[in-house]
Amino acid sequence: MILARTLGVAGATAAAALVWVLGLLLDADVETVRKSGETVDLPLLYVVVVALLSGIGGWAALALLERFAGARALPLWYSLATAVLLVALVHTALETQLSGGQRLWLGGLCVAVAVVLVTTLPRRA
């Protein structure tokens, strides 16, 4: 189980990196907005670290739910994962200083990580 979940987190991180690379290849503006309002390039290292931390956080949440919620762990975890994805997508959609392409690209990053985590973390080895 540990190996399968480790591979799931690694897969989610790789998916985020792949979306970042595809954004560069498709000449998308690989940028985000700081709190000060300026747009800055989003480095690959940042994307990888955030995806990795998201995967570890999802794994930790699932492990805690399995420990304390018993049979209700998976439905609760799926609900939590969906809520986190929706918050990320709404935040991206409401960011007024990003172009439509940038919003689509950042949303794609969120969805790529979520899809890999939701399909791999709950599996039992």
Rank of each mutant, 00 (worst) to 15 (best):
E95K: 13
L26A: 08
Q97S: 15
K35C: 04
E31I: 00
Q102R: 04
P122T: 01
L52R: 06
V48E: 10
L44M: 05
A114G: 06
L45E: 03
S79W: 04
V116R: 03
V116S: 05
H91L: 14
V49W: 06
S99C: 02
V50K: 09
V30Y: 08
V118Y: 01
L86Q: 06
V113W: 00
V111I: 12
G57T: 11
A17G: 04
L18F: 11
P43E: 05
A14Q: 01
L42P: 05
W20V: 11
D27Q: 11
V50A: 11
A61F: 07
V49P: 00
L24F: 11
V113D: 00
M1D: 12
G107P: 06
T96N: 13
S99G: 07
G37P: 14
T13D: 08
Y46P: 13
A93I: 04
H91Q: 15
L7H: 04
Q97T: 12
I2T: 01
V115T: 07
T39Q: 14
S99K: 02
L121P: 09
F68H: 12
T32L: 08
A71S: 14
T13A: 07
S54A: 10
V33P: 02
G57A: 12
L25V: 12
V84P: 07
A10M: 05
A69E: 15
H91P: 12
S54D: 09
S36W: 14
A61N: 08
L109W: 14
V116P: 04
L26C: 08
V47C: 00
G100P: 02
W105R: 07
L117D: 05
A14R: 03
P122S: 02
V19W: 00
L86A: 08
W20I: 12
R72A: 13
L18I: 08
G108Q: 07
G107W: 00
A125W: 15
L18R: 06
L121M: 09
A61S: 09
R5S: 05
A83K: 06
T92I: 05
L64P: 05
L45C: 02
W59D: 06
T96H: 12
L24P: 14
L86W: 07
S79K: 03
G70F: 12
V87R: 05
L45G: 03
L76V: 08
L104N: 00
L76R: 10
K35P: 03
A15G: 02
C110F: 13
T119M: 11
G23C: 02
V50C: 08
T32W: 10
G23F: 02
A61L: 10
G8T: 00
T13P: 06
W105F: 13
L24R: 14
I2V: 03
L25P: 02
M1F: 14
L85N: 04
L86T: 06
A69K: 14
T39H: 13
S99H: 01
A12S: 02
G108C: 10
L76P: 03
E66L: 11
R67F: 09
A125H: 15
V9K: 01
